[in-house]
């Protein structure tokens, strides 16, 4: 067992009290978010698990399974702190304050053995640094999960396929069209064409903020796929500024039927299907 491991084991309560004292004296203490009793419990659990890990595993092997429990507890702390409204900086400082306490005790215990103190300080530094990285990773992972879930939700709710008439579908597209979104739109559109036997689909892009050459390419793909299935695809909702960008970028949409509004696209669809909308005559 190396020097630090022995010191952590023998002087655990001193380290703990020093760490707590540092934390409680710190200006950044968030008593509004967590009371001191909970903070004590949390910190004690972490230090206990660290002592156990150091007992069985070498201090330099902080990536090995021996430290899994410590890392799990850290991840738990990071996650719950994030939920309670701690900033990542505050959580980071919490973990780093443990380093301070550990080093202070090491300095006392290894007084006079400069070489050993230097070696052990390095090791403790590396260990606690790796802990703080773990907390950051957990924090980011938590955020990423939220983002991923929201992306999925947005993709699902933002592409409704509406049956505007027997044989005519409309898809109002809202937001930016990227390639994964196009994939979802296309799949929904084509499946609905099969399910309803529709022969005309209107893609309305009034809600698309900008059309660059990539978005245009995605639109062209959707139109081509619809045609391969045996249906026609009209693009409507082209605002003047979008018409300008399309031409300035040199995008060729000449093979695609485009309309300014959903209403005129619908009129075109009626014409194609040989349908007519007429005002009712009241008196025969």
């Amino acid at each position: 067992m190396n020097a630090t491991a022995r010191i952590v084991k023998d002087k655990k309560s001193e380290i703990f009290e020093l760490w707590m004292k540092n934390q409680l004296n710190d200006d950044g203490l968030r008593e509004d978010l967590m009371n001191n009793e909970d903070l004590r419990i949390q910190s004690e659990e972490l230090l206990d698990s660290l002592a156990i890990a150091l007992n069985t595993t070498d201090i330099t092997d902080y990536d090995s399974p021996g430290f899994d429990t410590v890392n799990e507890i850290l991840a738990g702390i990071s996650g719950s702190r994030a939920m309670h409204g701690y900033s990542p900086r505050e959580t980071g400082l919490y973990v780093l304050s443990l380093k301070r306490a550990l080093l202070d005790i090491l300095q006392i215990e290894l007084a006079g053995q400069t070489d050993l103190l230097y070696q052990e300080t390095l090791k403790v530094n590396n260990l606690v640094d790796s802990f703080s990285i773990t907390t950051f990773e957990t924090f980011i992972k938590g955020r990423e999960e939220v983002i991923l879930r929201q992306t999925d939700e947005i993709a699902e709710i933002s592409t409704p396929v509406i049956r505007v008439w027997d044989g005519i579908l409309a898809l109002p597209i809202i937001g930016t069209l990227d390639s994964s979104r196009t994939q979802v739109v296309m799949e929904n559109l084509l499946q609905e064409i099969v399910a309803t036997g529709s022969s005309i689909a209107i893609l309305d892009i009034s809600g698309v903020p900008a059309v660059d050459s990539l978005v245009a390419q995605h639109l062209i793909k959707a139109v081509s796929a619809t045609r391969l299935m045996g249906a026609e695809c009209i693009i409507s909702g082209i605002r003047p500024e979008i018409a300008q960008t399309i031409v300035h970028l040199g995008i060729d949409l000449s093979n695609i039927v485009t309309k300014a509004t959903l209403a005129s696209a619908l009129k075109f669809a009626f014409n194609t299907m040989r349908l007519e909308v007429r005002r009712k005559t009241v008196n025969a």
Partner: peptide, 20 residues
Amino acid sequence: VAITLVELGLELPGVHTALN
């Protein structure tokens, strides 16, 4: 199949298509 063909760059020019 339609999505794959478009991605592949194969749009069957000159071929008529219908739903069923």
